[in-house]
C-alpha cells in the first residue's frame, strides 16, 4: 500500500456533510461580511476623497481575507493612510515576518530591500519596538496587554515605495521569500509613517 492509500484510509470515517447546506451557510454569513465591508469601504473612501487620493484606489471590499496573524496583534493603519489594506497601488508596505524567521532569512530580506530600486525608504520594526507601541495602544486594557508578550508580535520591514504602481510586483517578489508571513500595502500621504502602519 502506498502513502496515498494510507491517507485515503485515514479519512474513511468521514461523517460527511451536505455541501448544499454548507454553500448556503457560506452565502448567508459571507454576504453579511461583504455588506459590512462595503459600508466600511464607503467611509474610508470618503476620508480618502477628502485627502485627495481617489485614483486607482482598490477598496477594501476586495481585500484578502486576513487570516494569517491575529488581527489585534497587527499594528493599525497610520494616520493619513487608508484604513484597510489595498491590493494595488499601495504607496507604503509592511512586510511581516514569521515568528520563526531566522537571522539569515531576515538579513537576506534586509539586503534585498536595501538593494531594491523600487524601495524608497525601508525601516525595520523590531519585536520590542512593536511591543512598546502595542502596550501604548492597548493601555486601557491591561488584561489584554498582560496576556501578550513581545514574542507574540510580528517583526516587520516598513517600506515606502518609489512608485505605487510597483506594489503588486514587489508584493509577489517578497511573498516568495523565506521568512515572510505576509505583506500589507496601504495608500498613504507623504507625511505618513513609513509602511502605513503605526
Amino acid at each position: 500500500m502506498d502513502l496515498r492509500e494510507h491517507f485515503e484510509r485515514a479519512v474513511d470515517d468521514d461523517p460527511g456533510a451536505d455541501p448544499a447546506v454548507m454553500a448556503h451557510a457560506a452565502i448567508a454569513r459571507g454576504g453579511q461580511v461583504r455588506r459590512r465591508r462595503r459600508q466600511v469601504a464607503g467611509a474610508a473612501g470618503g476620508v480618502l476623497a477628502v485627502l485627495g487620493i481617489v485614483a486607482g484606489l482598490n477598496l477594501p471590499s476586495q481585500a484578502e481575507p486576513a487570516v494569517t496573524v491575529a488581527a489585534a496583534m497587527r499594528p493599525p493603519a497610520a494616520p493619513s493612510c487608508s484604513v484597510d489594506p489595498v491590493q494595488r497601488d499601495a504607496t507604503d508596505v509592511a512586510i511581516f515576518l514569521k515568528s520563526d524567521t531566522s537571522g539569515p532569512q531576515q538579513a537576506a530580506l534586509a539586503s534585498a530591500l536595501g538593494n531594491d530600486p523600487r524601495v524608497g525608504t525601508v525601516v525595520f520594526e523590531s519585536r520590542s519596538s512593536a511591543y512598546e507601541k502595542f502596550r501604548r495602544l492597548w493601555a486601557d486594557n491591561p488584561d489584554f496587554v498582560d496576556a501578550v508578550s513581545p514574542k507574540d508580535l510580528p517583526e516587520s520591514f516598513r517600506v515606502r515605495l518609489v512608485d505605487a504602481a510597483q506594489f503588486t510586483a514587489l508584493q509577489s517578489d517578497y511573498a516568495a521569500m523565506d521568512g515572510v508571513q505576509d505583506i500589507v500595502g496601504r495608500i498613504c500621504l507623504v507625511g505618513a509613517a513609513i509602511g502605513g502602519v503605526q
Binding site: 454569513r29 476586495q62 484578502e64
Partner: peptide
C-alpha cells in the same frame, strides 16, 4: 472531524466574501 467541518465552513465563508474577485 467536528473542527474539520468548522474550518471547512469558515474557508467557504471567507471565499464567498471575495468570490467576485
Amino acid at each position: 472531524w467536528h473542527l474539520a467541518q468548522d474550518l471547512t465552513q469558515q474557508t467557504f465563508t471567507k471565499m464567498y466574501v471575495v468570490w467576485n474577485r
